[in-house]
Nucleic acid binder design. Sequence first.
DNA 1: AATTATTGTATAGTTATTGTACAACCTACC
DNA 2: GGTAGGTTGTACAATAACTATACAATAATT
Lengths: 306, 306
Amino acid sequence: MFTINTIAKRLGIPAVTLRAWEFRYGVVAPARTGGGHRIYTEEDFQTLLWLKEQVVDRGIPISQAAKLLKQRQEEVSKTNKPLTSNVSYEEMAANLYDALLAYDNVRAHAYIDLSFSLFHFEDVFHHILVPILKRVGEEWHDGKVLIAQEHFVSSFAKQRILEFVRLFPVDRTMPKCIAFCPPTETHHIGLLLFTMFMQKKGHEVIYLGPSTTYTHLFEIITETQAELIFMSLTDPRYLKPAQHWLDEALEHFPHLKIVLGGLAFDQVDEPLKSKVLKGNIEDWERWYTNVMRNKKNPSLKDQEKG
Amino acid sequence: MFTINTIAKRLGIPAVTLRAWEFRYGVVAPARTGGGHRIYTEEDFQTLLWLKEQVVDRGIPISQAAKLLKQRQEEVSKTNKPLTSNVSYEEMAANLYDALLAYDNVRAHAYIDLSFSLFHFEDVFHHILVPILKRVGEEWHDGKVLIAQEHFVSSFAKQRILEFVRLFPVDRTMPKCIAFCPPTETHHIGLLLFTMFMQKKGHEVIYLGPSTTYTHLFEIITETQAELIFMSLTDPRYLKPAQHWLDEALEHFPHLKIVLGGLAFDQVDEPLKSKVLKGNIEDWERWYTNVMRNKKNPSLKDQEKG
DNA sequence: AATTATTGTATAGTTATTGTACAACCTACC
DNA sequence: GGTAGGTTGTACAATAACTATACAATAATT
């Protein structure tokens, strides 16, 4: 909600410097107005305030402070004993896993509710639910878990994620997204999590879900004026039609941003490779920073590391 | 009650600016005299005062402050339920239908939320959501609605139903249910509604969802000690395997209650016919009364008309 | 001591946002 | 009917931000 100068004054750091920090070290990623002006949130301000303390009071060079910040952010999300409790993600995941494999709805929901009260909601999804889904997937593959159990677990997960997604207020002036899995694809947890991620940022996401046919997608893009498409695909056998559709899509809508997720894109070559996004949220944050930074140049090719 | 200059003086903001705010950001909408002069109410003044605070004291640009205001107002209007309204199911369904076909998540959820505040929740599902789903299904069949729209609508419905289902407290001493659609079957709204119905009665329902394979179902029944199975099937081509599995199931678990739903069972003969339940909730209530009355004699054959 | 890297700041050339001025006309009200 | 005050629309100036590049000042390294 704040302009760069308001923030600069509140911090006592010139705006030029803030821009340099952002550009050089990717230290915050304020939203932009239609015209490209930075809009800082209170959270952004707190981040910058912390950085200023490190730099001004503790004499740490900004490059190091930025690294520390990244570490801190990743640690908060990766640590097994989150700040507020002495229960670890693993413990909670183990309990939930047991409840789910026993088809115990009541206990499963109770554990998830408890998790939400103990941990940050995104950590619940990424550090409790996702590991369980991965584990169940693997164990089904090894024959240790029944397909019905896998069914039950992913249905449960989907439910809890979608329930959450719709609670985020969206800013309808921000670019819209469409999320879908192509035909035959039924694994869409990643799609859901990415939907939540974008919705949390304030983007409206049109969730078309698993097994969406390519037909009519263009109409939908036109109709909804979506600017970002997220496609999830796990089976590499359907890479060809996906690629074909993507080529066409970019021809029709040159400014469309495309994001690809799922195992199928793991071993893919350029030009698709630059559009692939890995499953972890830290990468998503980095990607988002980059996309928003280059808002007027929607190509994702000029992504940088760091 | 106030003219623009009165307000301008009270705020310390020139009238020109107020008009610009109104014109550019739609920030207030004062009533007009017959001749077009603006008439501000005290409420308008308070709104403008709040805006002035954001802009002058907090350093938020007017464009952003206006957005914040809109969001605040939306939240307020969501919580202020217009209880006195005499909206019909049809009207509400028509509005919701429009929002859904336009992929308008925000509006769709707003209508459903409004519906919950106006009507009994079960009526919302059975008299608003179900008619929409039927209509969309038919119109898709007639080529009037895209498959992606159908997708979007049923995903939306599923989400809202499941969200509700889990809120009912279940009595774990009551007989458990398993709900599933056999392989190839993806239409499971009826299954969901029946799940909600049973859960509301206090039964725990293990929702296995669409396209559940028959393999291992016996194990699950044994493990969960479920006493009731609900199967939904729309495609009559898969009636044979369904019947075959049911025969086996009754052999293994003679006390199992079986309920069949979906179009596929419409024209079926005995002994399946007596297990078929139509889609309307009145029939469900009647059926439930009967089953519970005859609890010690789990056969459903001796159903009476009530 | 010289070289290189890091970091803050300055500047140029644009573009966006926002407040204000003005013309031409209209309304309220004594 | 006159005057003070209101209307819409367009125009414009004043800020304020943007990107990109350049350039000292300082710190680290060879």
